[in-house]
Computed example of a mutant assay.
Amino acid sequence: MIDCVIVDDEQHAIDLLTQHISQVHFLRLVGTATNPVKGVVMITDLKPGLVFLDVQMPQLTGIEILRLISKDSHIIMTTAYKEYALDGFEHAVVDYLLKPVQFLRFLKAVNRLWTVHNNARMISEQDHYVFVKTEQKGKLLKIDSRRITYIEGLSNYAVIHLDDRKKITTYLKLKELTESLSSRGFVRIHKSYIISLSHLTAIEGNMVRIVNEDQGISIGEAYRKDFFEYINSKMLTPPPDGRVN
């Protein structure tokens, strides 16, 4: 679902776009404004995925509003004047619709955005998955890295612990796993352990606590400095001496 806001100083133009939006299952209208200044406030507060923005309005033009609002909202510009299209596309708008906006032309514009939206979501979801070699020869297992709580190194293989207490054995060394997972919020704290920072619940002296695990995990001497420097950087009120260990 994509939340929409309409900013247009003509109520009949808003009414027409409202009717179009109501006929598209993946669009949801969350606000409208005939006053462009109020429209800027509405966009800032609601943070919609899509804004239908008129070009010519009193007080603020659509092009001026583009410079004021977050780039997180996609923009479809609407106007009766073709000559404004170039200005709009210079600001990376999704599309440019001429008034009165015809439904088929409207549908083409929002369908293009829906395709981009879905592709971005799929890529984001795929980024969380990793593949590991298992005990069974030739078998690869797909794992959602967000479910990994910690990884235990044992000689030439490792045991991956998941948030439901399941374990997966893989023939990878901790060094290889550290290099692959460091960008996903994992950190090595011991020669035998990598932990997920998102599943870290507490630090007790030289021990860390992991969600759903009864036993703590020791912080190795060789990893203490880097680990506590990171933890200190996340503290709301650092200790006077700058250390927590």
Rank of each mutant, 00 (worst) to 15 (best):
A80V: 07
G220I: 06
A202E: 14
H74E: 14
L236S: 13
D241E: 05
I76N: 01
L98K: 03
S155H: 10
V5K: 00
M57K: 06
D95Q: 05
E83Y: 14
L68R: 13
N119S: 11
G88R: 02
E204Y: 10
N206C: 12
Y171C: 06
V110M: 08
E176L: 07
D45E: 14
Q102S: 03
Y230P: 02
H12Y: 15
V37S: 07
P239K: 05
A222C: 14
I14K: 04
E176K: 12
I160F: 11
Q23R: 12
E90K: 15
F89C: 06
E221Y: 10
K175H: 09
L66I: 08
I6D: 01
Q136C: 01
S218D: 07
D72A: 12
K167Q: 14
Y150G: 00
V51Y: 01
M57N: 02
F89M: 00
T34L: 00
I21V: 13
K137D: 05
G153W: 01
K191S: 06
L141V: 13
R147M: 10
G153V: 06
N232H: 13
M122D: 15
D127I: 01
E152D: 13
V41R: 07
N212T: 11
H161W: 11
L113D: 03
T32S: 08
A202M: 12
N212L: 01
R105F: 00
I231G: 04
F106Y: 07
Y84W: 13
T44G: 04
F26N: 09
A85E: 14
L17A: 07
Q215M: 10
I65F: 12
G185T: 06
F227S: 01
M42K: 15
V101C: 02
S22M: 11
M122C: 09
I123L: 12
G185Q: 03
T18L: 00
V24M: 11
C4W: 09
Y84V: 07
L66T: 02
T134Q: 10
Q23G: 04
I231S: 04
K47Y: 00
M42L: 15
V208Q: 03
E213M: 06
N232E: 08
E135Q: 10
M57H: 02
S198W: 03
A85M: 12
G153T: 02
E90L: 09
R184N: 07
H190W: 10
I231V: 15
I168H: 07
